[in-house]
Write a protein that binds this DNA or RNA. Sequence first.
RNA 1: GGGCUGUUAGCUCAAUUGGCAGAGCAGGGGACUCUUAAUCCCAAGGUUAUAGGUUCGAUUCCUAUACAGCCCA
Length: 467
Amino acid sequence: MQTIDPVRYEKLIHLQSMGIAPFGSRYEVTHSSIGVIEGFVEGNEIEVSVAGRVVSLREHGKSAFANLKDRAGKVQVYVRRDVVGEDNFAVFCGLELGDFIGVCGKTFKTKTGEITILVENFTFLSKSLRPMPKEWYGLKDIETRYRQRYVDLIVNDEVKETFITRSRVIRMIREFLDKRDFLEVETPMMQSMVGGATAKPFVTHHNSLGMDLYMRIAPELYLKRLIVGGLERVYELNRNFRNEGISTRHNPEFTMLEIYQAYADYNDMMRLTEELVVHLCQNIKGSLQIEYQGQMLDFTPPWKRVTVCEAIENVLRTRIKGMQDVEAIAIQQGLSVKELLDDVLDHKIEKELVQPTFVIDFPTILSPLAKSMPDNQEITERFEFYISSQEIGNAYSELNDPIDQRKRFVDQNAEGVDEDFVRALEYGMPPCGGLGIGIDRLIMILTNSASIRDVILFPQLRKEGDK
RNA sequence: GGGCUGUUAGCUCAAUUGGCAGAGCAGGGGACUCUUAAUCCCAAGGUUAUAGGUUCGAUUCCUAUACAGCCCA
């Protein structure tokens, strides 16, 4: 354990000796910092009370200026010894960057035209015992920024902006779907069987049931049970957990939006994707052309569509008529079809998918939960969509044939058959379109963030060493 | 998992070929009644991530470890 800064502790004791509580309580706030500035009318100066953190302090002998920061922004306050009295003025000058105070007084305009509060009285609200990085220089050390996000948020305004935007995006998604009569639901995050995606799960244990549980890697199989149950339009916007590598694009827990719509198919999901992303783009950025990490992205629909076969053709420069050709190439290269496709999509084609693009018509053998084409059992009605060379989402016409589903579980799923899910399908699931969108990655694009860690408040890091 | 890079004062950064580890800001003392990266004066602040090694001498070269970043798998 680290010891408390002796100088700051000394100040705390000094405050107490003067009868001032270093960690105060409730304070009546009438205005936010920006509210004070926006509400200012020359000739009609009003009494305001504002609370916030001291982020700068400029003493001038018998007066002093300070800036208070609150959730809205900053406001300047001006304290004069002849107004607040000698003792109070001394307390004010003893403030340190990071301390919280509440101030009360009338607004005025300084010589330089800045709207400022002339402090009539102030209340000490909370002592800061750690030195604060000076705002002008900021906090740049990326490890400290992630580990001590609270400091990052205090000092780096653009970080706060990013997370405010994130919150707005999430709210807009809910509004967008609610308007289309989708129902937000919550399904289990602790599941007795892994399903809905291919990924290693986190395992946990329920003591009184005496059973292992898996943190969900996807909510898909539960949401489709709800389609069986007649809810028809459902979505879930919440955390998934995957026990895999960590990178600028992967965090072990991440936020996923999954949408299921009865009587729809993957073409409807493509339209829904375009409409949702366009809606967010327009409302967050005010344009469908946005800059992301130095490249211009154009979200004007319809987005480009390319089939998986075309993608392979482009990469391998050979004609492909059907899945037999793909399999033949895979065998020739000593790969499985999945490996070939991973290689083509993740390493070759992905780089070229900068503009929003739907990659469509995936092989059935890689899509155990998707409905195959009516005229071709080897291809499914499925797409993934890419923006800025990142996979953002995945969707398909859902497989609603329980007999086929059981067979695919047996053939393609290492985890085996989810008997209850198949039982649900046996009761009958209407044709249905499903869509999953990686929300963190989408927010990276909407906030021009290079790393997924810049859009997750507390990203996963290794245990902190002794520094 | 592999490769490369980084870790120096609370923060942001210096340090020549291996030769006394330095600045700005923050913090401390003082001056100052319109400043806003306030200004001026003074003093202080360091186990150079950790553990070893080479060397008369290591922030600097070598090895290992920890954490982080980037790239690749």
